[in-house]
Design a protein around this nucleic acid. Structure first.
Lengths: 204, 204
DNA sequence: GGTGTTTCTTAACCAAAGTCAACGAGAGTA
DNA sequence: TACTCTCGTTGACTTTGGTTAAGAAACACC
Protein backbone atom coordinates (compact mmCIF):
# COMPACT_ATOMS: atom_id res chain seq x y z
CA UNK A 1 0.00 0.00 0.00
CA UNK A 2 1.90 3.05 -1.19
CA UNK A 3 0.01 5.63 0.82
CA UNK A 4 0.89 4.20 4.23
CA UNK A 5 4.50 3.89 3.19
CA UNK A 6 4.57 7.51 2.11
CA UNK A 7 3.22 8.66 5.42
CA UNK A 8 5.77 6.36 7.02
CA UNK A 9 8.61 8.31 5.49
CA UNK A 10 7.21 11.52 6.80
CA UNK A 11 6.73 10.07 10.26
CA UNK A 12 10.36 8.98 10.39
CA UNK A 13 11.65 12.34 9.24
CA UNK A 14 9.38 14.18 11.62
CA UNK A 15 10.64 12.00 14.41
CA UNK A 16 14.24 12.86 13.66
CA UNK A 17 13.42 16.54 13.31
CA UNK A 18 12.21 16.56 16.91
CA UNK A 19 15.88 16.40 17.78
CA UNK A 20 17.57 18.05 14.84
CA UNK A 21 16.25 19.99 11.83
CA UNK A 22 17.25 18.32 8.57
CA UNK A 23 18.47 19.88 5.34
CA UNK A 24 16.61 18.81 2.21
CA UNK A 25 19.73 16.95 1.14
CA UNK A 26 19.68 14.96 4.36
CA UNK A 27 15.99 14.30 3.98
CA UNK A 28 16.30 12.95 0.49
CA UNK A 29 19.21 10.74 1.54
CA UNK A 30 17.07 9.34 4.31
CA UNK A 31 14.12 8.79 2.01
CA UNK A 32 16.39 7.11 -0.48
CA UNK A 33 17.81 4.50 1.81
CA UNK A 34 14.95 3.70 4.06
CA UNK A 35 13.08 0.56 3.48
CA UNK A 36 9.55 0.07 4.58
CA UNK A 37 8.24 -3.39 5.29
CA UNK A 38 4.94 -4.80 6.43
CA UNK A 39 4.83 -7.69 8.87
CA UNK A 40 1.97 -9.93 9.90
CA UNK A 41 1.05 -10.60 13.50
CA UNK A 42 3.29 -13.33 14.87
CA UNK A 43 6.06 -12.90 12.31
CA UNK A 44 9.55 -13.12 13.74
CA UNK A 45 11.86 -10.31 12.61
CA UNK A 46 14.92 -11.39 14.52
CA UNK A 47 15.78 -14.85 15.81
CA UNK A 48 18.08 -15.81 18.64
CA UNK A 49 21.40 -16.83 17.13
CA UNK A 50 21.03 -14.62 14.06
CA UNK A 51 23.73 -12.19 12.98
CA UNK A 52 21.31 -9.59 11.66
CA UNK A 53 22.48 -6.03 11.12
CA UNK A 54 18.98 -4.62 10.83
CA UNK A 55 17.46 -1.90 12.94
CA UNK A 56 13.75 -1.19 13.13
CA UNK A 57 11.56 1.83 13.52
CA UNK A 58 7.86 1.17 14.11
CA UNK A 59 5.45 3.28 12.08
CA UNK A 60 2.32 1.31 12.83
CA UNK A 61 1.65 -1.71 14.97
CA UNK A 62 3.67 -3.24 17.76
CA UNK A 63 6.91 -5.20 18.02
CA UNK A 64 8.22 -7.04 21.01
CA UNK A 65 11.64 -8.27 22.08
CA UNK A 66 12.02 -11.36 24.22
CA UNK A 67 14.53 -13.85 25.48
CA UNK A 68 13.91 -17.55 25.87
CA UNK A 69 15.13 -18.51 29.31
CA UNK A 70 14.52 -22.03 30.63
CA UNK A 71 12.07 -22.61 27.79
CA UNK A 72 10.08 -19.55 28.86
CA UNK A 73 9.64 -16.29 27.01
CA UNK A 74 10.86 -13.26 28.91
CA UNK A 75 9.50 -10.15 27.26
CA UNK A 76 11.91 -7.25 27.67
CA UNK A 77 10.22 -4.49 25.73
CA UNK A 78 7.32 -3.49 23.53
CA UNK A 79 7.83 -1.06 20.68
CA UNK A 80 4.87 0.82 19.31
CA UNK A 81 4.31 3.75 16.96
CA UNK A 82 7.36 6.01 16.57
CA UNK A 83 9.66 3.85 18.62
CA UNK A 84 12.88 2.33 17.32
CA UNK A 85 14.91 -0.77 18.11
CA UNK A 86 18.62 -1.25 17.47
CA UNK A 87 19.18 -4.85 18.51
CA UNK A 88 22.43 -5.60 20.30
CA UNK A 89 23.61 -7.88 17.49
CA UNK A 90 23.28 -5.09 14.92
CA UNK A 91 26.19 -3.40 16.66
CA UNK A 92 28.39 -6.18 17.95
CA UNK A 93 29.19 -8.87 15.36
CA UNK A 94 27.74 -11.34 17.80
CA UNK A 95 24.76 -13.63 17.52
CA UNK A 96 21.53 -12.19 18.84
CA UNK A 97 20.60 -13.37 22.30
CA UNK A 98 16.96 -12.59 21.82
CA UNK A 99 14.00 -12.54 19.48
CA UNK A 100 11.92 -9.77 18.04
CA UNK A 101 8.44 -10.56 16.82
CA UNK A 102 5.32 -8.82 15.74
CA UNK A 103 2.47 -8.47 18.24
CA UNK A 104 0.08 -7.18 15.60
CA UNK A 105 0.24 -6.43 11.87
CA UNK A 106 2.83 -3.68 11.58
CA UNK A 107 4.52 -1.25 9.23
CA UNK A 108 8.20 -0.93 9.99
CA UNK A 109 11.12 1.07 8.61
CA UNK A 110 14.15 -1.19 8.37
CA UNK A 111 17.71 0.11 8.38
CA UNK A 112 21.05 -1.65 8.17
CA UNK A 113 24.46 -1.08 9.72
CA UNK A 114 25.92 -0.27 6.28
CA UNK A 115 23.37 2.42 5.63
CA UNK A 116 24.02 3.83 9.06
CA UNK A 117 27.76 4.06 8.45
CA UNK A 118 27.20 5.68 5.08
CA UNK A 119 25.03 8.26 6.74
CA UNK A 120 27.59 8.89 9.49
CA UNK A 121 30.16 9.37 6.75
CA UNK A 122 28.09 11.74 4.68
CA UNK A 123 26.42 13.56 7.56
CA UNK A 124 28.50 13.47 10.75
CA UNK A 125 25.64 15.16 12.58
CA UNK A 126 23.85 11.83 12.50
CA UNK A 127 26.49 10.32 14.68
CA UNK A 128 25.91 13.08 17.24
CA UNK A 129 22.21 12.38 17.06
CA UNK A 130 22.77 8.68 17.60
CA UNK A 131 25.00 9.33 20.58
CA UNK A 132 22.40 11.60 22.10
CA UNK A 133 19.56 9.15 21.46
CA UNK A 134 21.63 6.33 22.86
CA UNK A 135 22.37 8.30 26.00
CA UNK A 136 18.71 9.21 26.30
CA UNK A 137 17.77 5.57 26.04
CA UNK A 138 20.34 4.67 28.65
CA UNK A 139 18.79 7.12 31.09
CA UNK A 140 15.36 5.71 30.37
CA UNK A 141 16.66 2.23 30.99
CA UNK A 142 18.28 3.28 34.25
CA UNK A 143 15.16 4.90 35.63
CA UNK A 144 13.18 1.86 34.53
CA UNK A 145 15.53 -0.24 36.60
CA UNK A 146 15.14 1.92 39.68
CA UNK A 147 11.41 1.90 39.21
CA UNK A 148 11.41 -1.84 38.92
CA UNK A 149 13.51 -2.29 42.03
CA UNK A 150 11.42 0.01 44.16
CA UNK A 151 7.97 -1.24 43.30
CA UNK A 152 5.95 -4.40 43.76
CA UNK A 153 4.49 -6.35 40.83
CA UNK A 154 1.09 -4.83 41.60
CA UNK A 155 2.52 -1.31 41.55
CA UNK A 156 4.34 -2.06 38.32
CA UNK A 157 1.12 -3.21 36.73
CA UNK A 158 -0.70 -0.09 37.87
CA UNK A 159 2.15 2.04 36.53
CA UNK A 160 1.94 0.30 33.19
CA UNK A 161 -1.80 0.92 33.08
CA UNK A 162 -1.15 4.59 33.68
CA UNK A 163 1.73 5.17 31.32
CA UNK A 164 0.52 2.90 28.56
CA UNK A 165 -3.09 1.94 29.07
CA UNK A 166 -3.52 0.74 25.51
CA UNK A 167 -0.81 -1.87 25.72
CA UNK A 168 -2.71 -4.10 28.11
CA UNK A 169 -5.39 -4.57 25.48
CA UNK A 170 -3.10 -4.94 22.49
CA UNK A 171 -0.88 -7.58 24.02
CA UNK A 172 -1.56 -11.05 25.49
CA UNK A 173 -1.47 -11.16 29.27
CA UNK A 174 1.26 -13.75 29.54
CA UNK A 175 3.55 -11.39 27.63
CA UNK A 176 2.66 -8.55 29.96
CA UNK A 177 3.31 -10.85 32.91
CA UNK A 178 6.85 -11.73 31.89
CA UNK A 179 7.43 -8.07 31.07
CA UNK A 180 6.49 -7.28 34.67
CA UNK A 181 8.69 -10.09 35.92
CA UNK A 182 5.92 -12.34 37.22
CA UNK A 183 3.99 -15.46 36.24
CA UNK A 184 0.70 -15.23 34.33
CA UNK A 185 -1.15 -16.71 37.30
CA UNK A 186 0.14 -13.94 39.51
CA UNK A 187 -0.88 -11.26 37.08
CA UNK A 188 -4.32 -12.80 37.02
CA UNK A 189 -4.57 -12.58 40.79
CA UNK A 190 -3.22 -9.04 40.81
CA UNK A 191 -5.90 -7.99 38.34
CA UNK A 192 -8.51 -9.61 40.51
CA UNK A 193 -7.21 -7.86 43.60
CA UNK A 194 -7.27 -4.51 41.84
CA UNK A 195 -10.83 -5.08 40.64
CA UNK A 196 -11.94 -5.96 44.15
CA UNK A 197 -10.29 -2.87 45.59
CA UNK A 198 -11.92 -0.70 42.94
CA UNK A 199 -15.26 -2.33 43.71
CA UNK A 200 -15.10 -1.89 47.47
CA UNK A 201 -13.84 1.68 47.04
CA UNK A 202 -16.90 2.27 44.93
CA UNK A 203 -19.09 1.20 47.83
CA UNK A 204 -16.69 3.23 49.92
CA UNK B 1 50.47 12.28 46.31
CA UNK B 2 51.97 12.95 42.89
CA UNK B 3 52.90 9.37 42.09
CA UNK B 4 49.39 7.98 42.32
CA UNK B 5 48.06 10.82 40.17
CA UNK B 6 50.71 10.13 37.53
CA UNK B 7 49.75 6.47 37.39
CA UNK B 8 46.15 7.65 37.24
CA UNK B 9 46.77 9.48 34.00
CA UNK B 10 48.28 6.40 32.49
CA UNK B 11 45.40 4.24 33.65
CA UNK B 12 42.90 6.55 31.98
CA UNK B 13 44.82 6.65 28.71
CA UNK B 14 45.32 2.91 28.75
CA UNK B 15 41.64 2.48 29.30
CA UNK B 16 40.76 4.59 26.27
CA UNK B 17 43.37 2.83 24.16
CA UNK B 18 41.55 -0.46 24.72
CA UNK B 19 39.01 0.93 22.31
CA UNK B 20 41.02 3.29 20.15
CA UNK B 21 44.76 3.94 19.82
CA UNK B 22 45.60 7.58 20.57
CA UNK B 23 48.02 9.91 18.84
CA UNK B 24 50.51 11.68 21.08
CA UNK B 25 48.65 14.91 20.40
CA UNK B 26 45.44 13.37 21.70
CA UNK B 27 47.23 11.96 24.71
CA UNK B 28 48.73 15.26 25.71
CA UNK B 29 45.35 16.99 25.30
CA UNK B 30 43.83 14.41 27.60
CA UNK B 31 46.60 14.76 30.14
CA UNK B 32 46.28 18.50 30.01
CA UNK B 33 42.60 18.68 30.80
CA UNK B 34 42.10 15.86 33.20
CA UNK B 35 41.79 16.64 36.79
CA UNK B 36 42.57 14.14 39.48
CA UNK B 37 40.93 14.40 42.83
CA UNK B 38 41.10 12.40 46.02
CA UNK B 39 37.96 11.80 48.05
CA UNK B 40 37.52 10.44 51.56
CA UNK B 41 35.19 7.60 52.38
CA UNK B 42 31.69 8.96 52.81
CA UNK B 43 32.23 12.14 50.81
CA UNK B 44 29.38 13.06 48.50
CA UNK B 45 30.47 13.93 44.96
CA UNK B 46 27.03 14.61 43.56
CA UNK B 47 23.88 15.61 45.44
CA UNK B 48 20.29 15.16 44.42
CA UNK B 49 19.09 18.48 43.00
CA UNK B 50 22.54 19.60 41.85
CA UNK B 51 23.19 20.78 38.31
CA UNK B 52 26.68 19.36 38.14
CA UNK B 53 28.34 18.87 34.77
CA UNK B 54 31.06 16.61 36.11
CA UNK B 55 31.83 13.11 34.99
CA UNK B 56 33.97 10.68 36.97
CA UNK B 57 36.42 7.96 36.20
CA UNK B 58 37.55 5.82 39.12
CA UNK B 59 41.27 5.13 39.32
CA UNK B 60 41.34 3.74 42.84
CA UNK B 61 38.61 3.08 45.38
CA UNK B 62 34.88 2.79 44.93
CA UNK B 63 32.01 5.15 44.17
CA UNK B 64 28.34 4.45 44.44
CA UNK B 65 25.22 6.01 42.95
CA UNK B 66 21.95 5.95 44.84
CA UNK B 67 18.49 7.44 44.92
CA UNK B 68 16.62 8.40 48.04
CA UNK B 69 13.14 6.95 47.74
CA UNK B 70 10.72 7.16 50.67
CA UNK B 71 13.61 8.17 52.91
CA UNK B 72 15.52 5.05 51.91
CA UNK B 73 18.69 4.76 49.91
CA UNK B 74 18.36 2.74 46.73
CA UNK B 75 21.81 1.89 45.45
CA UNK B 76 21.83 1.65 41.68
CA UNK B 77 25.46 0.98 40.90
CA UNK B 78 28.96 0.62 42.25
CA UNK B 79 31.93 1.95 40.32
CA UNK B 80 35.35 0.58 41.03
CA UNK B 81 38.79 0.76 39.42
CA UNK B 82 38.70 1.69 35.72
CA UNK B 83 34.98 2.36 35.61
CA UNK B 84 33.43 5.68 34.65
CA UNK B 85 30.22 7.51 35.51
CA UNK B 86 28.51 10.16 33.43
CA UNK B 87 25.60 11.22 35.62
CA UNK B 88 22.35 11.97 33.86
CA UNK B 89 22.47 15.62 34.92
CA UNK B 90 25.86 16.12 33.28
CA UNK B 91 24.09 15.71 29.96
CA UNK B 92 20.64 17.12 30.42
CA UNK B 93 20.55 20.58 32.04
CA UNK B 94 18.31 19.06 34.66
CA UNK B 95 18.81 18.63 38.37
CA UNK B 96 20.31 15.33 39.39
CA UNK B 97 17.81 12.80 40.69
CA UNK B 98 20.40 10.86 42.59
CA UNK B 99 23.54 10.99 44.69
CA UNK B 100 27.04 9.74 44.16
CA UNK B 101 29.20 9.12 47.15
CA UNK B 102 32.44 7.50 48.05
CA UNK B 103 32.38 4.00 49.54
CA UNK B 104 36.08 4.10 50.39
CA UNK B 105 38.92 6.60 49.99
CA UNK B 106 39.25 7.04 46.24
CA UNK B 107 41.28 8.62 43.48
CA UNK B 108 39.05 9.91 40.72
CA UNK B 109 39.56 11.62 37.39
CA UNK B 110 36.99 14.38 37.02
CA UNK B 111 35.87 15.70 33.66
CA UNK B 112 33.39 18.41 32.71
CA UNK B 113 30.92 18.87 29.89
CA UNK B 114 32.94 21.81 28.53
CA UNK B 115 36.10 19.75 28.34
CA UNK B 116 34.17 17.02 26.63
CA UNK B 117 32.80 19.35 23.98
CA UNK B 118 36.25 20.82 23.38
CA UNK B 119 37.57 17.34 22.86
CA UNK B 120 34.73 16.44 20.48
CA UNK B 121 35.55 19.60 18.57
CA UNK B 122 39.28 18.98 18.35
CA UNK B 123 39.10 15.23 17.95
CA UNK B 124 35.83 14.06 16.41
CA UNK B 125 36.92 10.48 16.96
CA UNK B 126 36.14 11.00 20.62
CA UNK B 127 32.50 11.45 19.82
CA UNK B 128 32.51 8.11 18.00
CA UNK B 129 34.14 6.55 21.02
CA UNK B 130 31.53 8.02 23.31
CA UNK B 131 28.73 6.76 21.12
CA UNK B 132 30.21 3.30 21.14
CA UNK B 133 30.75 3.33 24.90
CA UNK B 134 27.28 4.64 25.46
CA UNK B 135 25.77 1.90 23.33
CA UNK B 136 27.90 -0.66 25.13
CA UNK B 137 26.62 0.62 28.44
CA UNK B 138 23.07 0.47 27.19
CA UNK B 139 23.48 -3.19 26.28
CA UNK B 140 24.99 -3.89 29.67
CA UNK B 141 22.06 -2.20 31.34
CA UNK B 142 19.57 -4.15 29.25
CA UNK B 143 21.10 -7.50 30.06
CA UNK B 144 21.26 -6.47 33.71
CA UNK B 145 17.53 -5.85 33.56
CA UNK B 146 16.82 -9.26 32.03
CA UNK B 147 19.03 -10.89 34.59
CA UNK B 148 17.24 -9.09 37.34
CA UNK B 149 13.82 -10.09 36.08
CA UNK B 150 14.67 -13.72 35.62
CA UNK B 151 16.34 -14.38 38.94
CA UNK B 152 15.40 -14.44 42.58
CA UNK B 153 17.14 -12.27 45.16
CA UNK B 154 19.11 -15.31 46.26
CA UNK B 155 20.25 -16.02 42.72
CA UNK B 156 21.16 -12.38 42.25
CA UNK B 157 23.30 -12.46 45.35
CA UNK B 158 25.07 -15.60 44.17
CA UNK B 159 25.64 -14.00 40.77
CA UNK B 160 27.12 -10.93 42.41
CA UNK B 161 29.43 -13.13 44.48
CA UNK B 162 30.62 -14.76 41.28
CA UNK B 163 31.03 -11.73 39.07
CA UNK B 164 32.34 -9.39 41.74
CA UNK B 165 33.35 -11.31 44.85
CA UNK B 166 35.40 -8.44 46.23
CA UNK B 167 32.48 -6.03 46.35
CA UNK B 168 30.68 -7.86 49.12
CA UNK B 169 33.60 -7.17 51.42
CA UNK B 170 34.26 -3.61 50.35
CA UNK B 171 30.70 -2.40 50.71
CA UNK B 172 28.23 -2.37 53.65
CA UNK B 173 25.56 -5.05 53.42
CA UNK B 174 22.65 -2.67 53.50
CA UNK B 175 23.99 -1.05 50.33
CA UNK B 176 24.36 -4.44 48.69
CA UNK B 177 20.82 -5.27 49.79
CA UNK B 178 19.24 -2.26 48.14
CA UNK B 179 21.38 -2.88 45.08
CA UNK B 180 19.83 -6.37 44.91
CA UNK B 181 16.39 -4.89 45.44
CA UNK B 182 15.77 -6.34 48.90
CA UNK B 183 15.86 -5.33 52.56
CA UNK B 184 18.97 -5.83 54.69
CA UNK B 185 17.10 -8.37 56.85
CA UNK B 186 16.35 -10.45 53.79
CA UNK B 187 19.94 -10.37 52.64
CA UNK B 188 20.93 -11.56 56.06
CA UNK B 189 18.53 -14.49 55.79
CA UNK B 190 19.70 -15.28 52.29
CA UNK B 191 23.30 -15.38 53.45
CA UNK B 192 22.31 -17.71 56.25
CA UNK B 193 20.40 -19.97 53.86
CA UNK B 194 23.38 -20.15 51.54
CA UNK B 195 25.70 -21.00 54.42
CA UNK B 196 23.39 -23.77 55.56
CA UNK B 197 23.15 -25.21 52.08
CA UNK B 198 26.94 -25.11 51.73
CA UNK B 199 27.25 -26.80 55.13
CA UNK B 200 24.80 -29.60 54.45
CA UNK B 201 26.30 -30.13 50.99
CA UNK B 202 29.61 -30.55 52.75
CA UNK B 203 28.15 -33.37 54.80
CA UNK B 204 26.35 -34.39 51.67
C1' DG C 1 38.65 2.08 77.77
C1' DG C 2 34.07 3.59 77.63
C1' DT C 3 30.12 5.45 75.19
C1' DG C 4 27.16 5.87 71.52
C1' DT C 5 26.11 5.11 66.72
C1' DT C 6 25.86 2.35 62.85
C1' DT C 7 25.52 -2.15 60.90
C1' DC C 8 24.18 -6.88 61.03
C1' DT C 9 21.51 -10.73 62.74
C1' DT C 10 17.45 -13.19 64.65
C1' DA C 11 12.70 -14.27 65.52
C1' DA C 12 7.64 -14.10 64.89
C1' DC C 13 4.11 -12.89 62.02
C1' DC C 14 1.98 -11.45 57.64
C1' DA C 15 1.32 -10.73 52.71
C1' DA C 16 2.28 -11.97 48.24
C1' DA C 17 4.35 -14.60 44.50
C1' DG C 18 5.67 -19.37 42.85
C1' DT C 19 4.07 -24.07 41.86
C1' DC C 20 1.00 -27.57 40.45
C1' DA C 21 -3.17 -28.92 38.83
C1' DA C 22 -7.68 -28.37 37.05
C1' DC C 23 -11.08 -25.97 34.56
C1' DG C 24 -13.31 -22.88 31.21
C1' DA C 25 -13.77 -19.58 27.37
C1' DG C 26 -12.61 -18.51 22.71
C1' DA C 27 -10.39 -19.05 18.10
C1' DG C 28 -9.41 -21.84 14.50
C1' DT C 29 -9.88 -26.25 12.03
C1' DA C 30 -11.54 -30.57 10.36
C1' DT D 1 -20.72 -29.68 15.32
C1' DA D 2 -17.03 -31.56 17.52
C1' DC D 3 -12.04 -31.32 18.32
C1' DT D 4 -7.98 -29.03 19.52
C1' DC D 5 -4.95 -25.45 21.16
C1' DT D 6 -4.04 -21.40 23.42
C1' DC D 7 -4.94 -18.32 26.95
C1' DG D 8 -6.71 -16.84 31.14
C1' DT D 9 -8.58 -17.95 35.69
C1' DT D 10 -9.00 -20.32 40.16
C1' DG D 11 -7.76 -23.04 44.21
C1' DA D 12 -4.64 -25.38 47.54
C1' DC D 13 -0.26 -25.36 49.16
C1' DT D 14 4.72 -23.88 49.60
C1' DT D 15 8.30 -20.59 49.63
C1' DT D 16 10.14 -16.29 50.23
C1' DG D 17 10.41 -11.54 51.17
C1' DG D 18 8.51 -7.48 54.03
C1' DT D 19 7.64 -5.72 58.68
C1' DT D 20 8.46 -4.95 63.33
C1' DA D 21 11.05 -5.28 67.23
C1' DA D 22 14.90 -6.67 69.83
C1' DG D 23 19.49 -7.63 70.61
C1' DA D 24 24.54 -8.45 69.22
C1' DA D 25 28.66 -6.94 66.95
C1' DA D 26 31.63 -3.66 64.88
C1' DC D 27 33.18 0.91 64.57
C1' DA D 28 34.14 5.67 65.62
C1' DC D 29 34.91 9.28 68.61
C1' DC D 30 35.73 11.29 72.92
Amino acid sequence: METSKESGKNALIEYIEQYMPLTSEEKSSLEGLNLFREYKKGEVLLKEGAYSKETYFVLKGCLRSYYIHDAEEITTEFYTELEGVSPACSQTDEASEYFIDCVEDSLVSVGTQDMEEDMFQKFPRFESLCRILSEKLLLKQQTAMVNYKTSSPEQRYLQLMETNPGLVHRVPQYQIASYLGIKPESLSRIRKRIMQKAFSAHHH
